[in-house]
Amino acid sequence: MARPTPELIESLRRTARKLQHGSPYQWGHMGGCNCGNLAQELTKLTRDDIHRYAMQRYGDWNEQVEDYCPTSQLPIDLIINEMLNAGLTIEDLKHLEKLDDRDVLNRIPLSQRFLKHNVRNDVVLYMNVWADMLEEQLLKRIKLPVLDVVEMA
């Protein structure tokens, strides 16, 4: 599961918000799909740049991350590397593209849980629930110091 960081959580929420408000979404487009939209947010590349870089190698996001090589210097591997550096894992990217991470899905009410990987509103829901889950994990790790109460005379 992703390493919860404020930056990753905010990127997930910004991506979901942009999709909810009409940002281009096209599941068959490497820069406009689930991973592609998050990649835009994390890398600041355009959807067309991401798509063009991905087309230098074969396959969809699942195949791209399966063939990821951190030393290849292929543009798509540089994009994936940047996403991994943001706290994501290869498995997270596979799950995001299919909207099928069990931990995320289990937090969604059963009546809404059967998400379609290529439906904008389902992607928005998944990203928001995932961001909430990561935020809870992050907050559990924060330990505030116990302050000594000094009596005032």
Rank of each mutant, 00 (worst) to 15 (best):
N34T: 13
L12I: 02
L125T: 07
K116S: 14
Y58C: 10
S111T: 10
D92M: 07
N121A: 15
N37M: 11
L105A: 09
T46S: 15
W61F: 04
L110K: 13
C33Q: 02
P75R: 06
M30S: 09
H21Q: 13
F114A: 15
S23H: 09
L93E: 01
A2V: 04
V129R: 02
D103H: 13
Q26I: 09
L96R: 00
C33V: 07
H117S: 14
R17M: 10
R17Q: 13
Y126T: 11
S23W: 06
L105S: 09
H95D: 15
I9H: 01
R57F: 03
D77S: 06
G28W: 01
D122A: 08
Y58E: 13
A131Q: 04
K98N: 14
Q26D: 13
L125Y: 00
S72Q: 03
T43F: 05
R52A: 15
I80Y: 00
G28A: 14
L12D: 05
N106Q: 13
P4S: 11
Y53T: 03
E41R: 01
D60V: 15
M133G: 05
W27L: 12
E63T: 15
Q40N: 09
P75M: 10
V65S: 00
Y53N: 06
E41M: 11
L78R: 06
L88I: 04
R107P: 02
F114Q: 14
R13P: 00
P6D: 10
S11A: 15
M83E: 06
F114K: 14
T46L: 08
Y68K: 04
I90Q: 02
